[in-house]
Nucleic acid binder design. Sequence first.
DNA 1: TGGTTATTTGGTTATATTACCAAATAACCA
DNA 2: TGGTTATTTGGTAATATAACCAAATAACCA
Lengths: 120, 120
Amino acid sequence: MSTVKKERKFDGRLQAHLEARTKIIKALAHPTRLFMVEELSQKERCVSELTEMIGSDVSTVSKHLSILKNAGIVQDQKRSSQVYYLLRVPCILKFFDCIEEVLEANVKAHIELVRPCCTL
Amino acid sequence: MSTVKKERKFDGRLQAHLEARTKIIKALAHPTRLFMVEELSQKERCVSELTEMIGSDVSTVSKHLSILKNAGIVQDQKRSSQVYYLLRVPCILKFFDCIEEVLEANVKAHIELVRPCCTL
DNA sequence: TGGTTATTTGGTTATATTACCAAATAACCA
DNA sequence: TGGTTATTTGGTAATATAACCAAATAACCA
């Protein structure tokens, strides 16, 4: 009589939580936005400063910033006619360390593929 | 005479590095793949087990796994006719803690918006 | 060998993301 | 007020992602 419980872990609350996380991760998933996050972790910057550094159209830069803001990663502050952005959640930087670790592991694995005998 | 050096920080090496990081972050930027990473951090799993838990088509699950593998986040191991996947870089989990921190900060900010007087 | 299960790959369609230009808004100052 | 600068928003076209089905591959077993 007892039907085998189907272990589907992917519903409701969990799904919503995963999507909330995904939104934040997606906001980070662009080279320009990564650059911004690192830059804004050093020092607040206004849109035109960032635009100068990045070299895309201002509208593009502004949209990238709004994606980061919308995800809660940066916050903005208007001062006179400029809008300054700054990093809101510093732990993001620790996260980058982990990404770096993945990259290093990848490089190492690649080297080992080429020269299987001698692990660096 | 000396022209003002234009501080464009967004070239060559840096750009390549940002793109490498982006690839890894993108690989994480999907609810199904987040689920897989957490699942595989507990215990290795083969494709059909994951498929059962997730409830999408096997081909979809397989493609998600290949994205994670390609980014160097998981690794696979063939045993007889099954392919087992497991997390390759455990620091990814610490990363999730940071994402969680962002989420919590967002919730908090949202609550403060609604009731500006009483910080929880 | 022929049939079955596990996994990957190719193709197609729907949706999402991105970049740029143009136009709208906002703040300032002469 | 009119002109200028800073920023955001809307529109559009190009590209990237994602889901599913169908078919290919691989391992196994009778």
